[in-house]
Simulated assay, not measured.
Amino acid sequence: MTTILAVANQKGGVAKTTTVASLGAALAASGRRVLVVDLDPQGSLTFSLGHNPDKLTASVHEVLTAALPVGEAILSTDDGVDLLPATIDLAGAEALLLMRPGREYTLKRALAPVAADYDVVLLDCPPSLGVLTLNGLTAATAVLVPLQCETLAHRGVGQLLTTVEEVRQITNPDLELLGALATLFDARTTHSRDVLADVSGQYDIPVVAPPIPRTVRFAEASASGTSVISGRKNKGAEAYRELARNLDAYWTGGAALQTYDAE
């Protein structure tokens, strides 16, 4: 079965796009067939994987709003993953979808013809809890919440978890909450561990291993149009490779999901 993982948090700057690009590239490097979907009108994932959103004529916007077959919008990337890109036009999709019945299922229906071609589909949800994020959660089999290890990082986590529960009750009863993923983590400080312990204790959710360290390599990779996985060896790339191994063993090998003890 295809695993569809929504990477979601309505707070911006928590490394959602970095996680989708890097995890996708790591899974592809291990032999998995991977599709990444950019659901953010800013098109950051599209840009970070080497495509200019301003020069695209077909994107997820046309797939969702104009019934363009999804296969006609998918692009290849240098990281070995396929990309369903986004452009700024996607900003108008919310209003168009709001007028449609069954709007939460639009993405799920659109992906259905190609989902079986991939082992993993990663959804980069926008930093909001609007119709696009609801589409992502409805289409997904699981959701991962990137969490910045800094003060006030947990703002909005409770609301997101409430939304996940509502999606389970209404549109996707089988949606699995994998847990939080610690990003911008600095193992040298007690502050990072305290933030994780606070979130884990307050919301009773696991923290998926390993935490992703803070490194300038992520910004450098995005600017170059490739993921951090394809660059020089660095601690960020190694962390995402370990995350990929953890998730792959959980999804395909029946192994227990490895978690990080924040205490």
Rank of each mutant, 00 (worst) to 15 (best):
T183S: 10
P206L: 02
Q148G: 01
I4A: 03
A142N: 10
L111G: 01
T141H: 13
V199Q: 06
D38C: 03
P211C: 11
A182K: 08
V167G: 10
C149M: 11
P101I: 02
A110L: 06
V208K: 01
L27Q: 08
T65S: 10
R32E: 13
R33E: 11
Q169I: 15
A197W: 04
N246H: 04
V70C: 11
K235S: 15
G136T: 04
D38W: 00
V207H: 10
V120I: 15
R241I: 13
T106K: 14
K55R: 15
D117H: 08
G130Y: 04
R168S: 08
E62W: 09
H191P: 07
P211H: 05
D38R: 03
A95V: 14
K235W: 08
S230V: 01
V145L: 12
D261H: 13
V37Q: 02
L75H: 07
I4S: 00
G92M: 06
A116P: 04
L160Q: 01
G236W: 05
M99D: 08
A180D: 11
E238N: 13
R193V: 06
V199I: 15
A95D: 13
R109L: 00
P206H: 05
A25F: 08
D174R: 13
G24H: 00
N9F: 09
R245G: 06
L184I: 12
A237R: 11
Y203A: 09
A6Q: 02
R193N: 05
T46M: 00
A67R: 10
A237V: 02
T190V: 14
L49P: 00
D174A: 10
A91T: 08
E150K: 12
L196V: 13
D78P: 02
G231E: 12
F218W: 08
A209E: 12
A221W: 06
A256V: 14
A244C: 11
F185A: 05
R188N: 14
D82T: 02
R32D: 10
K108C: 12
E263G: 11
L75V: 01
D261A: 09
M1D: 13
L134K: 04
S230R: 09
T18L: 07
P210S: 07
A25R: 04
L177P: 05
L90S: 04
Y250H: 15
L111H: 11
R217M: 14
V216L: 14
A209R: 14
L23M: 13
G236Q: 04
A139W: 01
L184Q: 15
L129M: 10
A180H: 11
K55T: 07
N9I: 11
I4K: 00
A239F: 01
P127M: 01
E72G: 10
S48D: 12
H61C: 12
A153N: 10
Q148S: 07
L181Y: 08
T18D: 08
D174N: 12
D119P: 10
